[in-house]
Amino acid sequence: MPHIPGIETWIAALLTLACMSFLYKDNPFFRFAESLFAGISLGYFIGITLNQTLVPNLILPLHRDFGQNWDLLVPGLLGVLLYMRYVPKIGWISRFALSIYVAYYIGLDFTRRIHGEVLPQLARAIVPLSKFDSHTILYSLIFSVGVFSVLIYFFFSKEQDAVTRRVARLGIWFLMISFGAAFGFTVMGRVALLIGRLNFLILDWIYPMIGLR
């Protein structure tokens, strides 16, 4: 029994087609969809940050128990100071808040990168070959040679000689293989998005209209 899908399905379907129409050539429908998306995204971001972060984490605690939560005024004030850049006369005040913000994230990221990325992955790259069977040794060898040759390729502090140039060349091969793998995954990812959109267009929009669902 055919039935007309709801208005939300129609809006989503027509906007999907408008976006896809860019593949044929640039046109006003695509530009409309693009602008609409940019505007709605920004509005949504402001709304969700206000409702889900600012209200429960700042405004409500201050309102409910100011004595216990007065310290929240400090980050709240720093947030307000960021917007002082729009007042030219006192714009310099925003730099204080920005510097604290940057310093916090440098500290946070520094630990995160060293402790969470560099050290564990370095530890994995230094594996005693004697401890493994032949299969693991082969993989560890390829891994070690790959890491070493790529590092040589990116070592720019000294001019390459005949030996290091060959090792760097090997590093390029390793990089090319990794780029190839990344490209393959990217194709899979993009096709997945197309599959998702076509599923929506066919199963949720067209099929109900012709009574197939």
């Binding site: 992955q121 994995r124 990794s178 793998a181 995954f185 990217t186 899979m188 993009r190 997945a192």
Partner: peptide
């Protein structure tokens, strides 16, 4: 997502992940 999957293999290989589902 599949696009992000290659970088997570480094974490998987370093034993920082229990498991991983690469893309679709």
């Amino acid at each position: 997502t599949a696009v992000a999957a290659p970088k997570y293999y480094a974490y998987l290989n370093a034993g920082q992940l229990v498991g991983m589902l690469g893309g679709m």
